[in-house]
């Protein structure tokens, strides 16, 4: 994780602002937010409801455009693209994981994961091969031919993570991905997300659960659309003297 500081920037928001309405009725849903997410980095976004978390995620994913400021994805400014170009970039570069209803019920796990690749224009057999690799990487390779309703909630979220990062996709936007899971399953899903990001991706995670945000490299806090604070992206200090993953000498 120490190399993150020099890793390529995947997502960049510069003075990103989203105002709804005009004049005295104008509401600033997001106000001059600066945020950089690099390869290998997982950033958590926390804040009370209505603080702008969803707006931030929508701007980052190109689902919405800022009224001022810029959003850049792998160096490309989303505002330079028309709606069609944005849609193409969104589809090819970004994966999404939501709280639930991530998977298409009529498709198997492998088909769900290979679908984005087929839409990319990749041949069926190659898409399926890539999907199986992606499922292996999140530890559910053996469930490739199951349908979503034959999978547990945690397994479904793993499949969703595999799909989000299949092929050339390097940015995963996760909105309360552990919201419907118990704490042990949620932790297992976070472990998978963390590992996939470490293996070469970037992630933006919206959550209201501190224990899941703790898997991120840093947490940014939003309040009334303003980014009020951020935990420093430092290395953990030796807060437990002489600990770390403990190795007993005897």
């Amino acid at each position: 994780m120490s190399t993150v500081g020099t890793a390529p920037v995947i997502l960049e928001l510069v003075g990103a602002t989203r105002v709804h309405g005009e004049g005295v009725r104008a509401v600033r849903a997001l106000d001059e937010v600066d945020l950089t997410v690099r390869m290998g980095e997982l950033v958590a976004v926390m804040g009370p409801s209505g603080s702008g978390k969803s707006t931030l995620l929508n701007l980052a994913g190109g689902l919405d455009t800022p009224t001022a400021g810029a959003v850049r994805l792998a160096g490309e400014a989303l505002s330079d693209l028309d709606a069609k170009g944005r849609a193409a970039l969104r589809r090819r570069r970004i994966g999404y994981v939501f709280q639930d209803l991530n998977l298409i019920p009529a498709l198997t796990a492998a088909e769900n994961v290979s679908l984005p690749r087929e839409l990319d224009g990749v041949r069926l057999r190659k898409a399926r091969r890539e999907a199986l690799v992606a499922l292996e990487q999140v530890g559910v390779g053996h469930l490739a031919d199951r349908f979503p309703d034959e999978l547990s909630g945690g397994q479904q979220q793993r499949v969703a993570i595999a799909r989000a990062l299949v092929g050339p996709r390097r940015l995963v936007l996760a909105d309360e991905p552990t919201g419907a899971l118990d704490s042990v399953t949620g932790e297992a899903v976070m472990r998978v997300l963390r590992a996939r990001v470490d293996a070469g991706a970037a992630g933006l995670l919206v959550t209201h659960e501190p224990r899941f945000a703790a898997w991120a490299d840093r947490t940014v806090f939003l309040r009334d659309g303003v980014l009020v604070d951020s935990t420093a992206d430092d290395q953990p200090e030796a807060l437990l003297a002489g600990s770390g993953p403990r190795h007993r000498e005897d």
Partner: peptide, 20 residues
């Protein structure tokens, strides 16, 4: 907020130890 950032940082560090 200042405390929240600090507590969150500690929570992250504990989580990294757990992840290991």
């Amino acid at each position: 907020q200042r405390q929240r950032s600090e507590t969150m940082r500690a929570l992250r560090d504990f989580t990294r130890l757990k992840a290991g």
